[in-house]
């Protein structure tokens, strides 16, 4: 269990490192360029890993619907957007606003798809997220200290 917890927290930290590094690349190049290198380097990394542990092409690959491959193009925009905003508003605001938007969208999709759940709890959660997003964007100019 302790290893599972370490893996989960590490995954979150890696997301932060990735966004920070891509943001640095974006400062010297452009957001789209940083997204380009993120995906090409990620592609190479995953291919090398797959050679050693396999699993890149599962036996059920023919059952995947066409839209199942659309996450890649969405990811291109996602990484470019993150690289664009992180030098402007900082890591905390970027992380917190992305998380807010993500939870909001997942709750909306659950309601649309009629997934079982506790509607009141979900609404309360969304209300808290909305308040947090308003607080995050209500700041004055960011105080750069270095």
């Amino acid at each position: 269990m302790i290893f599972s917890i370490i893996f989960a927290v590490t995954a979150g930290v890696l997301v932060g490192i990735s966004r920070q590094v891509n943001g640095r690349l974006s400062v010297s190049t452009s957001p789209m360029m940083s997204s380009f290198y993120n995906h090409i380097v990620g592609f190479i990394t995953v291919s090398v890993v797959a050679v050693f542990i396999g699993g890149l092409i599962p036996p059920t690959v023919s059952e995947v619907p066409l839209y199942g491959y659309l996450a890649g193009p969405v990811g291109v925009i996602f990484v470019a957007a993150g690289s664009w905003v992180i030098p402007k508003i900082g890591a905390v605001n970027t992380a917190v606003l992305i998380i807010g938007g993500q939870m909001f969208m997942s709750a909306v999709m659950d309601v649309v798809e009629g997934v079982e759940g506790q509607p009141l709890l979900r609404l309360a959660g969304l209300a808290l997220i909305l308040v947090g997003m308003i607080i995050a964007q209500s700041r004055k100019k960011p105080q750069i200290t270095a």
Partner: peptide, 13 residues
């Protein structure tokens, strides 16, 4: 808010 959405059931980000 995220924790509430997560434990409210479906929400799977």
């Amino acid at each position: 808010g995220s924790v509430l959405v997560i434990i409210s059931g479906g929400a799977q980000a």
